[in-house]
């Protein structure tokens, strides 16, 4: 999963979804994943409905289905685990293609697969249509504590820089013929991790000095706090009600 972290998933487009306020998208995404998570697994129709709406949103966002599919591979380890369940699970068994599996286990597999894939699709849609600084801004508008927001903002700002430094260290090591295959050869990697920490910490101190030099007092100054833009409430509300309503109907019906 390491490689996936190094770049954002944003897809540059000009769709309605891209233009939505980030806080609206955050609320919508959260409402959708919570609804998906609480839907009972027997309500197969509900998951079909969610999938249809998400597919529709993907189309409106002009995200290629292939992009979504590739990004969904991030949940692969859990899918593997889910596929294993029928064989290690307990309870009543049945035969599928001549193999004895647990009935309850099959439901378990379905449950994890459906929820993990749908939930991840919602997250991928959110990140594909919202740039990282906007996500952070959305969190701030949704009243996530300021200290948490400030630290996160700095992390995002310096992430690429530090990842680049890491990359240069690795290139420098490879250029001198370092190609480790066993943990016993890992010392240079660990040392470079230590060196990278020292560099990061020292950069933190220099940035702090640069902040003090411009009148920093310990709190990040905030430009006049943005009020929550309610113009997009209708769309968000519709999505959340649609998903939550489905989840509730499914809960009652099963």
């Amino acid at each position: 999963m390491g490689a996936g972290h190094s770049h954002a998933l944003y897809v540059h487009e000009h769709s309605v979804v891209h233009r939505m306020a980030p806080q609206a998208k955050l609320v919508a995404a959260l409402g959708m994943v919570v609804s998906i998570a609480i839907t009972p697994r027997e309500a197969v129709w509900a998951f079909g409905f969610y999938a249809a709406v998400i597919a529709g949103l993907t189309g409106v966002s002009r995200i290629r289905p292939g992009f979504l599919a590739v990004r969904l591979l991030a949940v692969a380890p859990f899918v593997l685990f889910a596929l294993f369940i029928p064989f290690i699970a307990t309870g009543e068994t049945t035969e599928v293609l001549g193999i004895t599996v647990s009935v309850d286990g099959l439901w378990g597999t379905w449950n994890i697969l459906a929820k993990a894939l749908l939930g991840a699709s919602v997250s991928i849609l959110l990140t594909a249509t919202t740039e990282i600084p906007d996500i952070i801004r959305g969190l701030s508008i949704l009243r996530v504590p300021a200290l948490f927001i400030s630290i996160t903002t700095f992390m995002i700002r310096y992430l690429e820089l530090i990842a680049d430094e890491l990359g240069r260290m690795r290139v420098a090591m490879t250029a001198r013929g370092y190609d480790p295959r066993w943990i016993s050869q890992a010392r240079p990697i660990a040392s470079s991790a230590g060196a990278l920490f020292v560099r990061s910490y020292e950069r933190g101190e220099r940035v702090h000095a640069a902040m003090l030099a411009r009148g920093f007092t310990g709190e990040m100054p905030m430009p006049s706090t943005e009020a929550i833009d309610r113009s997009q409430c209708a769309g968000v509300l519709m999505l959340v009600v649609l998903f939550a309503g489905t989840a509730i109907v499914a809960l009652v019906a099963t």
């Binding site: 310096y158 530090i162 890491l166 890992a186 920490f197 950069r203 990040m220």
Partner: peptide
């Protein structure tokens, strides 16, 4: 008052450290 830059930049370090693939 160093909390924001120091925690922020070392968080970026931890994020990068998770990209440290080491041989097993």
């Amino acid at each position: 008052d160093k909390a924001i830059p120091l925690a922020g930049i070392t968080a970026a370090f931890i994020f990068a450290a998770q990209m440290f693939n080491f041989p097993v």
